[in-house]
């Protein structure tokens, strides 16, 4: 595992012998934050880690300074700015996004859309040199008119009525505006494909953990995943490499949804689309569904992204294919199925 992560970050990357860096993470206790902080802890190029979240990340070590800030509070902006200035952070990795949709949409809006605004203002105050933002290829939206491979130049067309997408699209456009106004700050946006792996937990892993997996009758779209290790690697590469821009971070290879479900050892239950939507409308507020009705079209149309730019410009090469991601998830999920492994962390 160490090999897979350190390979691109050590040998290939131009690491200028500058002063040791101070990296701040918002959403530090998230899956990506926890794992990145664990890796940064052992990285000698990093002198200090500033972990900002409502709860401490379990991987925090001696280099880590913990700050409890709730981005949904109006005071967060000033407090975040103070922290970044006091710690003299040069890089801000903004990960405070929800990995799964939630019924608490007002809170999610405060956290994602408004929280990003707070973070950007704080970054401007503290004259952050580099900003890395987590985004997702889900935001391209699943549409009949999508080409088989979406590049970074395609507009984000996910339905803004679904707060999960709307807030994230708003956050990304705020960040792009910030990048235009502040050319001295290097802004890197990583749009990850749905993350799958042995330890990650999100709406997708819950969907695939069901014994009976609902699909749409008559449709079998091609899907694409990103292995969790590759996701972490991509952020490491983005942090250490001086490349600005927006990048799709995806694994190689696509699989039809039916094959994914079979590889995961599950049974697909094809449901007609109107019925699926009606059921989801009732089941989602009752927290019986994994995602709201706006996600159903992702079971019908494809939203596969093209990772060539990340490969050529950013220098990120995925170590796992989509299929590997599914198999790795499956092998861990089996242990969870028979209660030999505890529930995955967030």
């Amino acid at each position: 595992m160490n090999d897979a992560i350190s390979r691109p970050s050590r040998s290939q990357l131009e690491s200028k012998p500058t002063r040791p860096r101070v990296i701040a993470f918002t959403g530090a206790a998230s899956f990506l934050g926890t794992n990145l902080i664990g890796l940064m802890q052992e990285d000698e190029r990093i002198s200090r880690i500033v972990a900002i979240d409502t709860e401490p990340p379990p991987t925090a070590g001696s280099k880590t300074r913990l700050y409890q800030v709730d981005l949904t509070q109006p005071t967060a902006e000033a407090r975040l700015g103070e922290i970044l200035q006091a710690e003299r952070a040069d890089t801000l990795v903004h990960l405070a996004f929800l990995p799964s949709p939630t019924t608490a949409t007002a809170w999610a809006h405060e956290l994602e859309s408004v929280g990003t605004m707070h973070a950007l203002i704080a970054a401007k105050q503290a004259r952050i040199k580099k900003l890395v933002l987590w985004s997702q290829t889900l935001l391209y939206g699943a549409h009949a008119s999508n080409p088989n491979f979406l590049t970074e130049d395609h507009p984000l067309r996910a339905t803004a009525r679904e707060p999960f997408f709307g807030d994230k699209i708003a956050a990304e456009s705020e960040t792009l505006k910030f990048a235009q106004k502040n050319p001295s700050t290097q802004v890197t946006i990583l749009r990850t494909a749905p993350i799958l792996g042995p330890t990650v937990s999100n709406f997708l892993t819950r969907y695939l953990a069901r014994r009976l997996v609902p699909t749409l009758m008559g449709f079998d779209p091609l899907v694409q995943f990103l292995h969790e290790i590759d996701a972490i690697t991509a952020f490491m590469v983005a942090i250490h490499r001086n490349v600005a821009g927006t990048f799709n971070i995806v694994s190689d290879g696509v699989l039809p949804l039916s094959t994914v479900i079979r590889l995961a050892g599950r049974i697909a239950i094809p449901v007609p689309q109107p019925l699926a939507e009606a059921i989801t409308r009732i089941a989602w507020p009752l927290q019986l569904a994994d995602a709201p009705a706006g996600f159903i079209r992702y079971l019908r149309y494809l939203f596969v992204a093209d990772g060539d730019r990340a490969r050529d410009v950013l220098g990120f090469v995925p170590a796992y294919t989509s299929r590997d991601a599914v198999l790795d998830f499956t092998s861990a999920q089996r242990l969870r199925d028979v209660q030999l492994l505890q529930e995955a962390s967030r």
Partner: peptide
């Protein structure tokens, strides 16, 4: 604690695959 445990889990999964 849980961090190292996780690392182990990942390593194991990959090692098996190999």
């Amino acid at each position: 604690m849980s961090g190292s445990g996780k690392g182990k889990g990942l390593g194991k999964a990959k090692g098996q695959g190999k």
